[in-house]
């Protein structure tokens, strides 16, 4: 006999909630990266989705060409993607700091087209499989539901990474420089802090977060050149909902909307792909500055 909640089997409900929480983890890490980059560089990184995809591909390439497994990829892939981001920032993005932030959006959109196009030419659009590491395959039977180990791992690790980022920015000296440079870069530079270096490292860090999310996503979704193209638009909506003023806000909004999306899949599956956009409309109507945003 199965337990029913509002006419839905409990198993199905919890399964979708877990899936929602996993999507929420990716939303949280991605919107966190966007918020960190936007806070200091004042540009919206449209390449973020492509960099998330690059993280997944880096893991796949490491495994298939170098035999390096999941655990090392979890460290190496974000570093590779982060380094790539640093090169891009130095060569291209740093030339736009004096201009309207819209140009940053256009530049990174162009970059996303190039990166996604290149990967699509070499790997096609059909997904490449990436196996769950043996240590995390299988799951636990909790009595009321089956909990796959890997999925629990993704949610816990994502929450930890978000918490670590919060610690780094709010509680360390480096984070203090970062926050100060966000408020007034000229003054911080006058105090002898190398602000251009800080900008480069911040972009690299934000991009590495996207790469990290990509590695985590690789075993769940197949590794696909366009996996980042649609998720980035959802993350934009999430960033509009949460506002980019606070780290805590970005993370909470990410996880929360993942859950809402999961719930919608159970009760009204037709609206699952649009529910986050509807949430954005409601927030714009009733709290235009965003849930955690400061009024512009």
């Amino acid at each position: 006999m199965t337990t029913m909640v509002f006419g839905v089997p409990l198993q199905a409900l919890l399964g979708q909630l877990l899936l929602g929480l996993i999507n929420g983890s990716f939303y949280a890490i991605l919107s966190l990266g966007l918020a960190v980059i936007f806070g200091l560089l004042n540009i919206i990184n449209f390449t973020h989705g492509a960099q998330y995809m690059m993280g997944a591909f880096a893991a796949w390439i490491l495994l298939n060409y170098a035999g390096i497994g999941f655990w090392w990829a979890l460290i190496l892939a974000p570093l590779i993607v982060g380094l790539f981001g640093i090169v891009i920032e130095r060569l291209l993005i740093s030339r736009l700091y004096q201009l309207d932030p819209l140009y940053g959006l256009l530049l990174t959109f162009g970059l996303a087209l190039i990166i996604q196009g290149l990967f699509r030419n070499y790997y096609g659009v059909s997904g490449l499989p990436y196996a769950i590491p043996p240590e995390l395959s299988g799951g636990w039977n909790l009595g009321f539901m089956f909990l796959p180990k890997y999925r629990a791992f993704v949610v816990v690790l994502s929450a930890l990474v978000c918490f670590a980022t919060w610690l780094l920015i709010e509680k360390t000296k480096l984070g203090a420089y970062l926050r100060a440079a966000t408020e007034n870069p000229a003054l911080v530079q006058a105090f002898g802090v190398n602000v251009p270096l800080l900008l480069t490292l911040t972009y690299g860090f934000g991009v590495a977060l996207a790469g990290f999310a990509g590695v985590l996503a690789a075993p769940i979704y197949s590794v696909n050149p366009i996996m980042g193209a649609d998720i980035i638009i959802v993350v934009f909506a999430i960033v509009v909902i949460g506002g980019m003023g606070s780290i805590f806000g970005a993370v909470l909004t990410g996880f929360g909307l993942g859950l809402i999306e999961g719930l919608t899949k159970v009760f009204y599956p037709e609206a699952a792909s649009t529910v986050i956009f509807f949430a954005m409309i409601l927030v714009l109507l009733f709290k235009p500055a965003g849930l955690f945003g400061r009024a512009a």
Partner: peptide, 28 residues
């Protein structure tokens, strides 16, 4: 009317998100 409630970079993101919603609705 929705998008002009936010400025600059947010405006661009809102219009993109709303258009993506139209895409998903058109798909269904």
């Amino acid at each position: 009317a929705l998008a002009i409630r936010r400025q600059g970079i947010y405006f661009a993101m809102i219009t993109l998100a709303l258009a993506q919603m139209v895409y998903f609705v058109s798909l269904q």
